[in-house]
């Protein structure tokens, strides 16, 4: 396998998996918040905290990918 092809494939894999990781991060944060809410009986508070954390985590993925993409 040529070196350039390998590099392109690697970038393809990385950027192709970006979308699903953003969506899943938000759902993981939400699910975590809901679960902790049930556990500590603080109904809506931790859900919003978890949701915010999930959204931030998802978007930090995009920012990191943007920094990586600057090299081109």
């Amino acid at each position: 396998m040529k070196k350039e092809t390998g590099k392109n494939l690697r970038e393809l894999g990385y950027f192709a998996s970006l979308g699903i990781s953003v969506a899943l991060s938000i759902f993981i944060g939400l699910g975590l918040g809901l679960w902790l809410d049930k556990k500590f009986d603080t109904d809506p508070v931790l859900m919003f905290v978890g949701l915010a954390l999930g959204i931030v985590a998802g978007f930090s993925n995009i920012i990191r990918a943007g920094k990586k993409g600057k090299n081109y």
Binding site: I20, S21, S25, I28, G29, L53, G54, A57, S60
Partner: peptide, 21 residues
């Protein structure tokens, strides 16, 4: 305190994205 949960969520998302794809 802000980065630790964010990174943990991002790493959990890796497992789930591999699984569900």
């Amino acid at each position: 305190p802000l980065f630790l949960p964010i990174e943990l969520i991002a790493h959990t998302a890796r497992v789930l994205s591999l699984t569900f794809r």
